[in-house]
Write a protein that binds this DNA or RNA. Structure first.
Lengths: 318, 318
DNA sequence: CTGAAAGCGCTAACAC
DNA sequence: GTGTTAGCGCTTTCAG
């Protein structure tokens, strides 16, 4: 019908006919059926987003960044939670693919050794961009924080503040844990410092960060600083330290990464490294939309967002 | 085809035929096209969720509750952010409707006086359930916290702790602000207390809660307690109080509501009222699914989730 | 510039 | 149990 053209704003419709159609559309309260449209046009204008945990404000912020930058372009966003479980993620991917999404953005919880789920995406020719968790073996576009730079920024800040025995709460391998750990080690090495391996403890969230810090506090030469790979672990660390009657920042300085929204409301306002989560989402959306629009497959692009230091009281000079 | 029946697990297929089909499905890596399926079946198995702000952990938690309880039933969830803007919300509703969602869950930012957007949902016969923000004029199902009970619980707790001059940071009208304010007033009245109207100040988040509290702190008889209608405002209040050199809980006690995830990581662990956000999401999903399944329209149900007190250090006895 | 013809990939209802 | 016949409401292609 001509109606279809009017609805889609095609140019080849007479002005008079168009307004006549438009009038009738208002009158009947007509709304196009996107399901039918999607089937015929072979495009759904939906994109899928899979994150490990929507409750984590870092991912919530990314999700928001994606939404706000992609909605104006006519896309809707289906957000899924993988619960940090690769099997769940894998099935989410299939569901989204079955729903014929035009593209996918994922912060993947797949083990780097077994990423066949990505093969299925590629097999269907659906463009996707990876965020936050990087898979170097994969030739997919990636947008994320520069983890190594984050590790260096945080550690150097601590060193500048006079700390010598800097402990690290390391995140999950390989992402984002190893990059930040690498930056941490590089900064220490550059400053000629060395710490016992026992100063490096793993954790993932505030609860495990709390536990990890309690172990740290039982060490003989007490650390004089702790760099948590993310803000929740750093917040957990602060809780353990204060509970032990140790003062922050006088005796131990603490820094995190992520600049989550509540960072400056914590017991001691938490210094952190901002990784511009919103921009990560926006950029990922941008790359994805371009890939969807492209007729020929675009080469994968990698974008590392530069982190910035946010110094607050938890690392204030004594 | 018979294939269709196998995919949908219809009973009327021979065991042998079924396994033959299944084998071929694996072999060809076949995946049903949900768009086509939706068009033919007139059901999308998608539900739409609109919240004012995904970054607010209360809504993130609700979203998660909805997702986790509805995914196993075969539904996918499209989450939208209205940015607390009724025009945005209204257009989101139309988009979702155009996508033929089977149902809608909304924490609506519509002004109670102008809810024609709901009419459009009803006109299409799409079931929906309201959460968090209640619209008494509407005969729609509702799931939310019992705001008045929250206000009473928090205020009574403060009274029990010996506070007499209890200030309140009031939330947006009418929801959830007025219910909590009402509970606050009722608790004061029951205890025979009265406070000047200047003790009641409006705010919406941590920043405005901070500002509001600064005004509170300039009052002549200083309040000896502050009840923030939600945790962010209470956290902002704590910031302002501590900045002014006033001790919590010795001089001023503080309580919030919502029990957001970071509440016990704050400068002084924040007492709060838990409103079981996850359960709100689950219950809403549950009601919605039942309404979708029902052949005849079900009567609207209203579910108020009972709040519970979480006492932490910010209201500890002196 | 307008509209007729064909079909997107599936499910519904019914016959075999 | 199996497979047939019709669409679901649109977009595409191409003839008027």
């Amino acid at each position: 019908m001509t109606v279809s053209k009017v609805v889609r704003n095609c140019a080849d419709v007479g002005a008079e006919t168009r307004s006549r159609v438009l009038a009738r559309i208002k009158e009947l309260n007509y709304q196009p059926n996107w399901v039918a449209r999607s089937l015929a046009a072979r495009r759904t204008f939906m994109i899928g987003v899979i994150v490990p945990d929507l409750m984590h404000s870092f991912f919530a912020e990314i999700a928001k960044g994606i939404s706000t930058s992609i909605r104006p372009l006519g896309y809707d966003v289906v957000i899924c939670n993988s619960e940090e479980d690769s099997a769940v993620e894998s099935s989410e991917i299939d569901r989204l693919l079955g729903r014929q999404v035009d593209g996918l953005i994922l912060a993947s919880a797949q083990p780097p050794s077994a990423t066949e789920a990505f093969d299925r995406i590629e097999a269907r020719g659906v463009p996707y961009v990876l965020i936050d968790r990087r898979f170097p073996d994969r030739a997919a576009s990636y947008v994320g924080a520069d983890d190594q730079a984050i590790g260096m920024l945080a550690t150097n800040h601590l060193i500048e503040r006079g700390c010598r025995r800097i402990a690290h709460i390391a995140g999950p391998e390989p992402n984002p844990g190893s990059g930040r750990l690498k930056g941490y080690r590089a900064a220490l090495a550059a400053a000629g410092l060395s710490v016992p391996e026992s100063y490096i403890v793993p954790a993932t969230d505030d609860a495990s960060g709390y536990e990890a810090t309690r172990r740290l506090l039982s060490l003989k030469p007490l650390p004089d600083a702790i760099f948590g790979y993310n803000d929740p672990t750093a917040a957990g660390a602060m809780k353990a330290i204060l509970e032990a009657g140790i003062r922050i920042p006088e005796e131990i300085k603490v820094i995190g990464a992520g600049n989550v929204h509540y960072s400056d409301l914590l017991r001691v306002p938490l210094s952190t490294v901002d990784q511009a989560s919103t921009r990560i989402g926006q950029q990922a959306a941008d790359i994805l939309v371009k890939a969807i629009g492209a007729k020929r497959k675009k080469p994968a692009s990698t974008l590392l967002i530069e982190p910035t230091l946010v110094a607050r009281e938890s690392t204030a000079a004594r």
